[in-house]
Amino acid sequence: MLSHRLENGVLVLTVEDAPGLREQNLAALISDLVHVHDPTPAVVVLGTVVPDEVIEAVVEAYRRCRRSDVLISVATPSAPARRTLQAQAAAQGGGLVVHARVDTAVRTADATAA
């Protein structure tokens, strides 16, 4: 499941456990919400255990949104997920900002967009 809210001028998208949610569906949901709120910066929040399918979906959503120049970041306490996200984004040209904490990600996105 994907929930969203606006916090300090930042679109915060929280990915929660969603058995059966396919990678392409999640990527489409994320990218659609980012496009609808364009030019608002977005932070995708992931949990402590991040399945490979979710990482792939986030990277795919980031790829879909790159043309719009919207700042997209990810926040997850999972160090392995952060490393994987950074590596996969770097393979596509980089630019995805990955944080360990949600509050840091939101503050940084807000400050960068200002």
Rank of each mutant, 00 (worst) to 15 (best):
I72C: 01
A105N: 01
P80Y: 09
A91D: 00
Q24Y: 12
G47M: 10
D69H: 14
L29S: 11
A91H: 01
V49I: 13
L2E: 03
R22Y: 06
N25Y: 09
M1G: 10
P80W: 11
S3G: 13
S31A: 07
A91L: 01
Q92L: 12
L71K: 05
V36W: 09
A81G: 02
T14G: 04
Y62G: 02
L71P: 07
E53F: 03
R82I: 03
T40K: 14
A111H: 14
L11G: 14
L11W: 11
V44E: 02
A42E: 08
I72K: 01
G93D: 06
P80E: 09
A28L: 10
L21D: 07
D38S: 11
V98A: 03
V45M: 07
N8E: 13
A27S: 12
L71Q: 07
D52G: 15
T108D: 15
D52R: 14
R82C: 01
V43Y: 00
V34I: 14
A100N: 10
I72W: 02
M1F: 15
G20L: 06
S78I: 08
N8I: 10
R63Q: 10
A89S: 15
V98N: 01
V50S: 02
Q24H: 14
V102S: 06
A79I: 13
L11F: 07
V43N: 07
T40S: 14
R64F: 01
V54Y: 05
D110I: 15
P80V: 13
L13C: 01
C65Q: 01
V74C: 00
G94K: 10
I72T: 05
L2K: 00
V12N: 05
P80D: 07
A114Q: 13
L13W: 00
T112A: 10
E60V: 05
P19F: 02
T108L: 09
L96E: 02
G95H: 08
C65G: 03
Y62C: 00
A100K: 11
A100S: 14
G94D: 12
G47Q: 08
H37C: 06
V12R: 09
V102N: 06
A111I: 12
G9Y: 01
D17H: 12
D17R: 12
V58A: 02
L21F: 06
T40L: 14
V34F: 04
V45D: 05
A28I: 08
Q86M: 08
L11D: 09
D103K: 15
P51T: 11
G9W: 01
I30C: 00
D110W: 10
E60H: 07
P77S: 05
A114M: 09
T84V: 07
L29R: 12
P39F: 03
L46R: 03
D103P: 11
D110N: 10
A111G: 07
A57T: 13
L26A: 04
Q86L: 08
L33Y: 11
A75N: 03
H35P: 09
A105G: 02
V59K: 01
H37F: 08
Q86E: 15
L26S: 02
R107L: 12
R101F: 05
V45T: 05
R67N: 14
A18F: 09
N25P: 10
